[in-house]
Amino acid sequence: MKLLAKDESLCIGCGECEAVCSKTYFKEISPEKSCIRVGDQKIQVCTQCGECIDVCSVAAISRDKNGVVRINKKLCVGCFMCVGFCPELAMKMHGDLLEPFKCIACGQCAKICPTHAIHISEEA
């Protein structure tokens, strides 16, 4: 399963990851639109646990072939139940957007992290 793994003790809270994430997916630098959130030696990001899959009543969330949990925006009706039910608080909502968003383990942030506090893990 592919996921963004973390070592919180290494995080210095620089926010580079947030910037690159929101830039990649929303073409702007805005921590509110980042799938990863850092601060206080805490890194909040999806663990690909899959709990949100069952929460979604329109089956808009599923696991792709790499094991990454993904949202099908076309099917999503914007109820945000998945946001309220995510144990990691890693499913995110932003007022500009009709659907929630989450980390899809693309690794852009891992590339830029100066302390290697985050990396892509592909273990089963």
Binding site: C79, F80, G95
Partner: peptide, 26 residues
């Protein structure tokens, strides 16, 4: 169907209030 079909004046409040209750349920 989407979350804004009612054309509410303040969608963010709907989102936040809803998520607050979802979280309570959870």
């Amino acid at each position: 169907v989407k979350g804004d079909l009612n054309h509410p004046v303040d969608k963010l409040t709907l989102n936040k209030t809803g998520i607050k209750l979802h979280k309570e349920m959870h």
